[in-house]
């Protein structure tokens, strides 16, 4: 039966690729590595690992990128080694492949790198550990929230957030007051898994943050956990300088069904930014209280179609729940 030349070969000729990997020309070796990675064959893994020792940095980078499809201890060990490559591009490729690891068995080599002297290595090791969700990472990640480098602290927050372990809560609450705004923002978002009162406490702090994106994250957290304790600080956030924060605070108050917020939310319905009017109208519907009806009816013909649609919908929800 015909078929020769019509189909891509089902299995790459690894022996032939091996020959080209021995070429004196680094470009030829590089092309061979690209084909090797594309073959998606299990046998390509050790060959790619060997190529991490190639004298040519481009070959090593290609090999590090191709290893993103493999998992497990051997891959992790090899990539952890490549993370220390003198060539920055090779190290970057290794870092991004490490982030693809999924099996808990890949953790040991990463756990040795979290104390490496270079911050970018520590950060990449934590980033790789995040998806593995292994218990041995817990205590060191808590410790790493005190790292001198904000990139490391940010990745450590990610590891703890994925682990969702209550033992990390005090440290995450502490991280919500980190000096770096990215770390604070991540820590506040991470606390969505915390018991309501704990998260509400963190949200309260976050709503007073100097950085608007942290305040926005804190408002969003309050909406996610729906804890009544959060209401007073959210009410204050309805006056935030950033409409983005006000919008998230409004939505959160809607989730909390905060009847006290109705007048303040009603006032937002005349704000010039239509996105904010939209959020306020959504919140008023979520609260499901007839006191909101005069506010909503007043914007049933708002100039912005999204605002009036939601105002009408919210009024409909309130009337049908009362009826």
């Amino acid at each position: 039966m015909a078929g020769q030349g019509i189909f891509e070969t089902l299995s790459a000729d690894l022996a032939e690729i091996e020959t080209r990997l021995a070429s004196a020309d680094p470009a030829e070796r590089r092309v061979a590595i690209i084909e090797l990675a594309e073959s998606a064959e299990a046998a390509a893994q050790p060959m790619l690992i060997r190529a991490l020792a190639d004298p040519d940095a481009d070959v090593r980078r290609e090999a590090a990128s191709g290893l993103d499809q493999f998992d497990g201890l051997e891959t992790a060990t090899a990539l952890a080694g490549a993370l220390l490559d003198p060539d920055a591009d090779v190290a970057a490729a290794a870092a991004s492949s490490l982030a693809e690891l999924k099996s808990p068995g890949a953790a040991p080599p990463l756990l040795t790198l979290i104390v490496h002297e270079r911050a970018e290595v520590r950060a990449a090791a934590w980033r790789g550990l995040r998806g593995l969700k292994v218990k041995p990472a817990l205590a060191p990640a808590i410790e790493a929230l005190k790292d001198v480098d904000p990139r490391v602290r940010r990745e450590a927050v990610g590891v703890l957030a994925y682990l969702k372990n209550e033992a990390a809560l005090p440290a995450l609450i502490e991280a919500a007051r980190d000096q770096d705004s990215d770390v604070r923002r991540a820590a506040i978002s991470a606390l969505a898994f915390a018991p309501g009162a704990v998260a509400a406490e963190a949200a309260r702090g976050g709503l007073a943050d100097e950085h608007w994106q942290v305040r926005e994250a804190a408002a969003a957290l309050s909406g996610k956990i729906s804890i009544a304790d959060a209401a007073p600080s959210l009410m204050l956030a309805l006056d935030d300088a950033f409409w983005q924060v006000r919008g998230k605070a409004a939505l959160a108050l809607g989730k909390l069904a905060s009847v006290e917020a109705i007048p303040a939310l009603g006032a937002l319905l005349s704000h010039s930014v239509s996105n904010l009017r939209k959020d306020a109208a959504t919140a008023l519907g979520d609260i499901r209280h007839p006191d909101a009806l005069p506010f909503l009816d007043a914007v049933a013909d708002d100039a912005d179609p999204d605002v009036r649609k939601i105002a009408r919908w919210s009024a409909h929800l309130i009337r049908s729940s009362a009826g």
């Binding site: 993103d68 999924k102 998806g131 990610g158 957030a161 991540a186 978002s189 991470a190 969505a192 898994f193």
Partner: peptide, 13 residues
């Protein structure tokens, strides 16, 4: 997701 296609996840994954 298992195949390596990336979807947006929140901070908790």
């Amino acid at each position: 997701d298992d195949w390596g296609v990336k979807f947006q996840k929140d901070e908790n994954g």
